[in-house]
């Protein structure tokens, strides 16, 4: 790989200063997107700021009626946490389906959402569950955090510190995984709250998005029948060698059904 500098700060202020010390200094969490990107020369940072030595960024705890998951918490820890399972089983199951066991032993929640890959799983849960992203500077609602392909509301030097997940009445996730990469060709996360139903879709479009038509139907009647025949607009879908736009639109409907079945199974 092309040479870069490496830093391992022990607090957020140091990390922020290091991140702003050069034109292209990248934060390193689990590294399971960043390092492959560097290896394949999609990224060529001048420096890396390893967040692993900053205390307090990993761990899971209750915060009032919300579950607070630290940014450096690994997928494996979310997947196997009894606290996560009790709060939202679909979230634990989603984390347990990311990549493979070795990836889950390194990849982190904060890394995933800060990268905002349009086919990543976690953005669907964070947006679907109306979670709040805690950063080194402020709190950002999920609706404002995700801003399209590989783009978020994070400012330069701003780091995700945790995500606060509300407790849904029911939640489910349906994913059609790419058979090689295990990324979502389409993933649909459904969460039911007293105030209504939220439906977040990953993999299908330019970035994670809320499927408002499905939300409106399900908020009226929370069953499969209410969304029968509902298909998103093909114009909003990705089309590539893996799946055409019409096929992805079709998969949205099918994965919505699976997410609803998952809701029923977990409640």
């Amino acid at each position: 790989m092309r040479p870069f500098s490496y830093h391992r700060p022990t607090d957020l202020a140091q990390a922020a200063a290091l991140l702003e010390s050069g034109d292209d200094v990248a934060a390193l969490a689990g590294g399971h997107t960043l390092l492959p990107a560097i290896k394949s020369r999609l990224r060529a940072p001048d420096g890396l700021v390893d967040l692993s030595a900053i205390p307090g960024l990993a761990g899971i705890r209750e915060d009032g009626d919300r579950l607070l998951v630290g940014a450096m918490t690994r997928h494996a820890d979310v997947a196997t946490s009894p606290q996560v399972a009790a709060h939202c089983r679909a979230l634990a199951r989603l984390a347990g389906g990311i990549g493979d066991p070795q990836v889950r032993n390194r990849g982190t929640l904060g890394g995933s959402i800060a990268n905002n890959d349009p086919a990543a799983d976690y953005p669907a849960a964070v947006l679907g569950l109306a979670a709040t992203v805690h950063t080194s500077q402020r709190r950002i609602e999920a609706d404002d955090f995700f801003q399209g392909m590989f783009t978020t509301a994070l400012e330069p030097g701003e780091l995700v510190t945790a995500v606060a997940f509300p407790r849904p009445l029911a939640a489910g996730y349906g994913r059609f995984a790419h058979p090689a990469s295990r990324y979502a060709l389409v993933g649909v996360f459904v969460a039911r709250f007293a105030a209504g139903v939220r439906v977040a879709v990953t993999g299908a479009g330019a970035g994670v998005f809320r499927w408002m038509a499905a939300e409106n139907c399900l908020s009226g009647s929370f069953d499969l029948g209410s969304v029968a025949g509902l298909v998103p607009d093909e114009a909003d879908m990705n089309g590539d060698i893996h799946a055409s736009a019409p096929y992805r639109a079709h998969l949205c409907s099918v994965m919505l059904g699976r997410a609803l079945a998952d809701c029923a199974a977990s409640s």
Binding site: Y6, G31, L35, K39, A76, P101, Q102, N105, R106
Partner: peptide, 29 residues
């Protein structure tokens, strides 16, 4: 594969399998 997919480079880090092609050496300090 050298692209984090095949698992031929798996090693145990504190007893857990990880992919040695997707860690920097400095990360195992």
């Amino acid at each position: 594969c050298d692209t984090s997919q095949c698992g031929a480079c798996n090693v145990l880090l504190d007893g857990e399998p990880v992919k040695a092609c997707t860690l920097l050496a400095v990360q195992v300090e």
